[in-house]
Simulated assay, not measured.
Amino acid sequence: MENKTTILSLFLIFLFTLPFSAQESYFPPEGEWETKEATAYQLDFAEAIEFAQDNEYSESRDLRQAILKGFQSEPYHKILGPTKKRGGPAGIIIKNGYIVAEWGDTERVDMTFSVTKSFLSTTALLALQQNLITDVNDKAGNYLWDDTFEGPHNSKITWKHLLEQNSDWSGELWGSYDWADRPPSDKNIDEWRERELHEPGTYFKYNDVRVNVLAYSLLNVFRKPLPKVLKEEIMDPIGASTKWRWYGYKDSWTTIDGLKMQSVSGGGHSGGGMFINTRDMARFGLLFMNNGKWEGNQLISEELIKEAVQPSKANTNYGYMWWLNADGPRQWENIDENIFYAAGFGGNFIIVDQKNNLVIVTRWLQPSKIEEFMQILYKNI
C-alpha cells in the first residue's frame, strides 16, 4: 500500500509540474470559440489593445490606392488581381487555445497580403508530407514539364531555395519580371535587369514574382488548385469558416489534365492573395503553435513544422516563408527569439509563441509599430 501511495504521489508531482499547455489543450470547434478572461492566466492586454487601436495603418482604406502608392517606385507595376477596401484595426489573442482578448471586427474578411506566403509554404509542406516532392533539396525543374527552370542558373534552383526566397530565379511570369519587383533605388532599370545573378541559396531577396513561381510549381505538382488543397487538408480540419478566398491574377491561368486552373499569388503586391478574417488566421496560427496537430490529428508532421521555422543561411530571420525572431537585423528587442510569425503589407501579422502557448493576430497595425506593440504586450508575460 505504501508503494502505491508513493507512486501516486510521484505521479501527481509530475502532473502538476508539467507545462500548463500539456494539462489543458483546447481546439475550437467549427463556428465556435470559447473565451476566458486574460486574468485567469494573470495576464492583462488592455494597454497593448489600446496601442493597436491608436496606431492604425496610416495609408488609405481603399487598398487599391494603398498598393499603387506603396509600390509606385517599381517599374511597370500594376494591379493584376482583385483588391478590397479594408476595415479598421482588429486583432485576437489566443492562450492555450482560448480567446483571451479581441478587438475590432474579427469576422470581417480582408486582404492579408504577404501573410499569404505562410499559407503557400504550408501547401509545400503538404507536398513533402504526401511525397509529391521527395526531398526539399530536389531541383524544382525536375518536377515541371515546361521551361520555367531551364537555363544554367534556374536549373540549379531547389524547392528549399524557393521557400527561403534565396533562389534568385530570373525570368517572367504572368506578365511580371523578377528584376522589376522591389528593385534597388541606387540602380537604373538596365543595370538591375542585366545584373549578375547570385548562386541559389546565397542571397535573400523578397520577391513576389519568385514566390508566384513557387505557387505555379506546386500547382503542377498537386495537379489541382492550391486553395482546394489548403481547404481539404488544413482549413476544413481546423474548423475555418467558408468565407476565406485565395486569388491569383486575371491572367494567371493554366491547363492541367484538360482543366483550366488559376495559379494563385503569394501576396497582394499586385492584388490577389489570401482574403481572410482574423479568426481564421488565428486558427491557422493555433495549428502551428501545436506543431501541426489539431485535436489529435497530425495534419502536418511536427518534423516539417520545425524544419519550416529554421533560420536560412542567407537570412537568419527567415525560414520557409515564416519570419523568425532569431538573432538578426529584424529581431524584436526583449522578445523571445523562438517566436515566429507571418507578416503582410499594411500591418497584418500572425505571431506564434510556442513557449507561452500564445497566438497573436493583428490587422492594420502601423507596421513600424509592431515591435513596440509586442514589447507592451509582453510586459507581464
Rank of each mutant, 00 (worst) to 15 (best):
E199C: 01
A240Y: 05
M374S: 14
T255F: 12
N315K: 14
S301F: 04
Q53M: 14
S263I: 07
D190W: 00
S368I: 03
L365P: 05
T106D: 06
P82V: 01
L63E: 11
L219F: 02
P152R: 02
L125P: 00
N220L: 07
F51L: 08
S176L: 12
W332S: 12
N317I: 07
K205L: 11
Q165C: 09
I376Q: 14
I67V: 12
Y76I: 02
K205V: 09
D147C: 04
R195I: 00
K293W: 00
T35H: 02
D138T: 01
T106M: 06
K369V: 01
N315E: 11
V209R: 10
I157V: 05
A101P: 10
N334H: 14
Q354K: 15
H198I: 00
F340C: 08
G31C: 04
N220K: 14
L324T: 02
A127N: 00
G175I: 06
S114M: 01
E47W: 01
E337A: 06
S217K: 11
K69T: 08
D146I: 04
Y216V: 03
L80H: 08
I13P: 10
K156P: 05
V100N: 06
W103I: 10
G319Q: 02
K369W: 12
G151P: 08
Y378H: 13
V221F: 12
V213L: 12
I92K: 03
S368Y: 03
F16S: 10
D62C: 12
F275G: 05
F373E: 09
S21T: 04
I92D: 00
N3K: 15
K224R: 13
K260S: 13
P28M: 11
S270G: 05
E107S: 14
G328N: 11
L259T: 01
Y177V: 01
G296D: 04
L358K: 12
E24M: 12
G201C: 06
Q298S: 13
T134Q: 13
A40S: 15
T242A: 02
I360W: 06
Y249M: 01
T242K: 06
I67D: 11
K224E: 09
T39N: 13
M261V: 15
F119R: 11
A52E: 09
Q42I: 08
S121F: 09
N154G: 14
E233C: 04
P200G: 13
N277G: 07
L324D: 01
G88E: 14
G97N: 10
E199V: 02
W192C: 03
I92H: 00
Q262K: 10
T123M: 03
K231W: 10
N315I: 02
F11H: 09
F27A: 11
E32D: 06
E199L: 07
A22D: 06
W294Y: 05
P367L: 12
A124T: 15
D168C: 06
Q65A: 15
K355P: 05
